[in-house]
Design a protein around this nucleic acid. Sequence first.
DNA 1: CGGTGTCTTGATTCTCATCAATTACTGTGG
DNA 2: CCACAGTAATTGATGAGAATCAAGACACCG
Lengths: 237, 237
Amino acid sequence: MIRHRIDCLSCANTDCLIKKHSKDPGIEPYLAKKVSIPCRKSQNIIIEGSPIHGLYFVYSGKVKVLTTGINGREQILRLAKEGEMLGQRGFNTHQYYPIGASALEDSIVCNFPLDVMKEMLLNIPQLAYDFISFYAEELHRSETKVRMFAHMTVREKVIDALMYINRKFGQKKSYINLALSRKEIADFAGTTEEQVIRVLSTLKKEGLILLSGKKIGVPDTDLLKKEIAEHHYYIQS
Amino acid sequence: MIRHRIDCLSCANTDCLIKKHSKDPGIEPYLAKKVSIPCRKSQNIIIEGSPIHGLYFVYSGKVKVLTTGINGREQILRLAKEGEMLGQRGFNTHQYYPIGASALEDSIVCNFPLDVMKEMLLNIPQLAYDFISFYAEELHRSETKVRMFAHMTVREKVIDALMYINRKFGQKKSYINLALSRKEIADFAGTTEEQVIRVLSTLKKEGLILLSGKKIGVPDTDLLKKEIAEHHYYIQS
DNA sequence: CGGTGTCTTGATTCTCATCAATTACTGTGG
DNA sequence: CCACAGTAATTGATGAGAATCAAGACACCG
């Protein structure tokens, strides 16, 4: 079932760092070592704690990146769509993946073994530099999340999670194109299923979001944003 | 008062990524563009929101890296000592530093302007690769912290903060070589001054830590570690 | 038409942030 | 050297918010 070598040159994912450099001189031999793997919905792409076997890039589909936290709770760290990278934290001295990744819908991911990746980075300096920029951005995102989790209320956490999901998977004037369970939203926002439901119900009553079964719609991003900003302001002053 | 060009070759900070590569061919011209800056205790090295002006490396002293969170609260993200990097998140497309840094004691930091840094990374591939590894590690740390903040109790957060501080600044059989106020510990652990005091008092009573004024000692790291691990275990199973 | 799992709502308990008041510590000037 | 002022540390009391527990509604699937 494994489809080998989806061609990077003909790939349409403009966000992909590899695709971006697929015309660089000297990169072809590395690209040839790529393997593409199809994954069914809710299948594990990376198992937390398994030995590191390289980096992944999402060719198509949607993926959640998670770690197991306290009480065996699942903490979703981020959601990835076409072109995004998975397993990038396996680049340090760790021997095992500190995170897991699983498909939110049927997906195809491309894998580069770690040694191939290392050679590629050492020989394509511009690619390495883009990697560094990417990491800097991810680090920024993650540290923002630290700050957020430390002192935000549940309401704010949920709103923030919704804005993130909407930014990534929302289409204007319509529902978000991603079916997450309440539990998954909670695991991302860092709270419980029940609290998420309560906040969602309230937000619906307030007219800030649309709810139609599992589908969530955000008619006005700015209104939601204010819900976080205003609260900060009124306490800050 | 600015001392120019502390020589990287004679620098004793083995952890410093620049020092590590200071003998690489072709790196001298970049090293020559380094500027070293002395900072007094509690002086700001990086002001949050200021325009990015490059990367810093701690030559001597101790530094806290922080962001302003909800309610104008200070959230300490990490502590840095000799050889460590500051401002690494300014590497992405951001124009302003998303974090601040200030000296915990009299320190000297070395600065590379951003364009020099970029040139250096593009021309010294092995340095770029080490940067990537460093970022991967930082990202790992940060995401672990996210998970931690999401569901840990205050007690666990404080213990975790203590273990981090002890790992970095502890000397065996003695008190931790770093004077942090209760407020600063709280800002790092993501809680309040009062809660930190309560937990510290309890831990002292339980014989898990030593308290002598501001000085904190951790006689047995494993005992503390168990305090976190056991709680997880008993709920997980 | 059961049955299973997700979703929802309510009630209860508990943790933690906040507020308030007291005590210890530090440095400074007389 | 001591009084003092100012700051940090501590302890207690209280209330708000959130996790947990429990029970019922709903949808989906065989």
